[in-house]
């Protein structure tokens, strides 16, 4: 059932043409990023993962707008339960994120844009970072869109704020002081992942592992929260 539901939702999204603006920005962003050659591998992947974070959130918002409330109700009834429908919708958003993650990783290699050969370890690290950021961006968009938040302007403003604050966390903390760090805990843990891509040799201890595991745990918690809130608000 899930493959059929995901295929239907992707078809709705593609037919709505809402995929076009985020896809265009993503492709133009990638091309712009790799215009000058050669480029450092991990630094470039850090930039493309940030781009993907924003684009995935845009796609998540686009999905909610493309299908609309009444068609969501119809699809949920045909699926047999609201929860199954919401899981299918999340899978469709993740599928787009995964596809774009692969594009972001393959494009510079295929175009010969790097200053050195990409090692397997670097590629896997970059893949993990892209997938994690795509998932976090998509989930942030889903939890801040209808049915959880119905007012479009409020939803867009909150999403933009969350995206910007989560990326600029370290810079803001430098300005206002590290004591405010707990305020940023509810935000997606994006900045540490990007920081680790830019400084891959900084730390190889347990803290390093936590940088990669925490987004997965955070994503899992956000996912459960999304399902509960969306089910309640439908």
């Amino acid at each position: 059932m899930f493959p059929r539901l995901v295929s239907y939702l992707l078809a709705v999204f593609l037919r709505s043409h809402r995929y076009f603006p985020p896809l265009l920005v993503f492709l133009l962003g990638l091309m712009l990023l790799y215009t000058a050659r050669p480029n450092p591998v991990m630094g470039s992947y850090a930039a493309s993962s940030v781009l993907l974070y924003f684009v995935s959130a845009w796609i998540g918002t686009g999905f909610c707008g493309a299908i609309g409330e009444a068609q969501e109700h119809i699809a949920a009834v045909h699926t047999g339960s609201v929860r199954k429908y919401l899981i299918g919708k999340t899978m469709a958003v993740f599928a787009c994120g995964l596809l774009l993650s692969l594009a972001a990783l393959i494009y510079p290699v295929a175009a010969g844009s790097f200053d050195e050969r990409v090692r397997a370890g670097e590629w896997l690290t970059a893949l993990l970072a892209h997938v994690e950021l795509a998932v976090l961006g998509g989930l942030a968009a889903l939890i801040l869109s209808q049915p959880v938040i119905r007012k479009g302007s409020l939803s867009a403003a909150m999403l933009l704020l969350v995206l910007i604050l989560s990326i600029a966390r370290d810079g803001i903390l430098k300005e206002i002081g590290g004591g405010f760090a707990p305020l940023f805990i509810p935000l997606p843990p994006v900045a540490p992942v990007v920081d680790r891509l830019i400084n891959p040799d900084a730390d190889l201890s347990m803290q390093n592992a936590a940088v990669w595991i925490w987004p997965l745990v955070y994503g899992g918690v956000l996912y459960v929260l999304y399902l509960r809130l969306a089910e309640k608000k439908m």
Partner: peptide
């Protein structure tokens, strides 16, 4: 709300979801 499918296409999608 109308969707950008032909009627048969739309019904086929929903029928497939219903298995």
């Amino acid at each position: 709300p109308p969707v950008r499918f032909r009627a048969e296409e739309y019904l086929a999608h929903l029928g497939r979801i219903r298995r």
